[in-house]
Amino acid sequence: MKTEKIYYKNQFQTSCEAILIESIENGLIFDRSIAYPEGGGQIGDVGTLIRCKDGSEIPFYNTTKIKGRNIFLNDFPSIKIENQIVHHINSSFEFEKDEKFLIKLDHLKRAQTTLHHSGLHLALMVLEEMFSGIDKKIVGAKITDKYGRLDFSIDFKFTPEQIVNIETRCNEYIEKNIPIEVFPHPEENEALYWKCDNYIVPCGGTHCENTKDLKGIKIKRKSIGKLSERLIVEIPFNEQFLSLYSDSNN
């Protein structure tokens, strides 16, 4: 049985009721969840599991996915969909199958992670304008609530002038208030694309809905080897974006 991924329907929902379908070592699997699992470089959500029968609270410190179905599309990376989502816990409780829980998200951490994911895509969009095909040189990615980074296997270093130009171009897009869309592949609902302006890339992470949310973006670089370069994106806390998250648990 797969986990229904509520974040695909409403990524701003911060809680939901769910039924326990399986208990594994250090983890619980539910029939549905608002928690985004680690994947594509983005960290997994954290939060609290509340047992409906007694109100006890159990923190979950990470979210990952297991099982699922492999898909192979001509114009999309091979990925696994229809997974089960594991909410990782440190607990010695005994749990009963079909037990009801309330899953509550750490929405501050999710919001800032979401902004860094979209900010990283925006920076890559600008990089593509400057260095066509550089997306094929990506060898690593990490998206957290504190930063987003991309690692490239390239034989040159980003100059200070290029870093300033990337940040300037990002801010120009931000000032234009360009809508950001996430939409599915026509053949698979969980094969998703990210779109900003005319730039489209496959991505199933969480994202903001407009470039204006990325105001204050900072771009940095770091040398990580003779033939490797790291681009780092930092987004300041955005209280207005955080306010979009709803306590609805429908």
Rank of each mutant, 00 (worst) to 15 (best):
K2E: 12
F72W: 12
T211S: 10
W194E: 08
T113E: 04
L214G: 01
I66G: 09
Y147I: 09
E167Q: 15
N70Q: 11
K67N: 12
M1W: 10
K215H: 05
E94K: 13
I174R: 03
C170N: 01
K220L: 14
L122P: 01
F76A: 02
G133E: 00
I24F: 02
K222H: 11
H116C: 03
E190N: 10
T211P: 05
E96F: 14
G205Y: 02
P37I: 00
I58S: 11
F183Q: 02
I143T: 05
D106Q: 08
S15Y: 08
P186C: 07
I154K: 01
Q112A: 06
V126G: 01
V233C: 02
N189K: 15
T3G: 04
L28D: 04
E17S: 12
A18L: 06
I178E: 15
R110N: 07
K220T: 10
N10D: 15
P186D: 14
C52Q: 11
N165P: 03
K5Q: 12
F30T: 02
P179M: 11
L127R: 00
T64G: 05
H88C: 10
F95C: 07
C16A: 15
E234V: 08
M130Y: 01
V182F: 05
F237T: 13
K222M: 13
Y61E: 14
A111E: 02
